[in-house]
Amino acid sequence: MEYIINQFVNGICQGFIYALMAVGYSVIVGVVGFVTFTHGEVIVFGAFASFYIFLLCGNNLLLGVIGSFAASWLIGIFVYKICYERFFHAPRHIALICTIGVSMLLKNIAQIIFGPNKKPMLNIIKNKIYSFGIVEISKVQIVIILTVIILSALLFIIFMKTRWGISLRAVSQDKTAAAMMGINVKQTAMIGNCMGSGLAGVAGLLIAINYQTVYATMGSNLSIKAFAAAVLGGLTSVPLAALGGILIGIIENMGITFTSASLRDIFTFVFLIIILIFKPQGFSKKKGVRP
């Protein structure tokens, strides 16, 4: 019983990371209007950025977060320039295939640069375990959950209170109307893409801390997880995507508790299929732009 409860806690913690990925994903889909396959690779680059920052600058979590955010932001610009900028008015499958191409490119370049082996992440947070009755929660997990909450709150403030946020929301609702109101749609879409990528990068950092390892091929399945979580909110609703992420984290961890750890990725897929069967549009009521 204790084991199950602690697995549940682990699931929630992991779910928060997935939530951050999914939030990034739905920001990208919402603002840019295209579905992307590069998300997993962006996450890997974010993770490696923080890995090297910790290696060079020592235990500074804040610096790591900023570094991985910035690195992923740059990758976001790269992805945007190659996959989206030229193809806003082209048939949709072209941008889609482009993101597949870029995902292959980034994945293999990551393998060449960072090497194919798993690298142990530095222990930047002293591992302390707090117990509340039978529930045990480690310091790392608390840090992860707090980071996700703070970043989400920041994102919310940016979206709701700043000029950037207004243009981002305008572009996500109607590109033509936004352009007529004098918003630079392409630039705004790029910022949206970069913000989503940046969040994904931080998620990469958190995954690296959580698992204590980084490796170049860890992104492959994360794309699907981010997508599955975002589907819950019809791909564009940010809060529901976050909820989806947490749900997936819990389902996965409960699933592997009762079966075997190597089946982890199957549960995401089952979750995705079930949602598509029963609630294909997700739970989002908002009628926004759909990809």
């Binding site: 579905v35 699907i224 199957i266 995705l272």
Partner: peptide, 24 residues
């Protein structure tokens, strides 16, 4: 399950399916 949705859902489903088949 993807027939009601846009094509992209099929893409993701097949991608996930491919990985699931390999895992099985």
């Amino acid at each position: 399950p993807t027939l009601r949705m846009q094509g992209i859902y099929l893409s993701i489903i097949t991608l996930g399916f491919s990985e699931v088949v390999r895992l099985i």
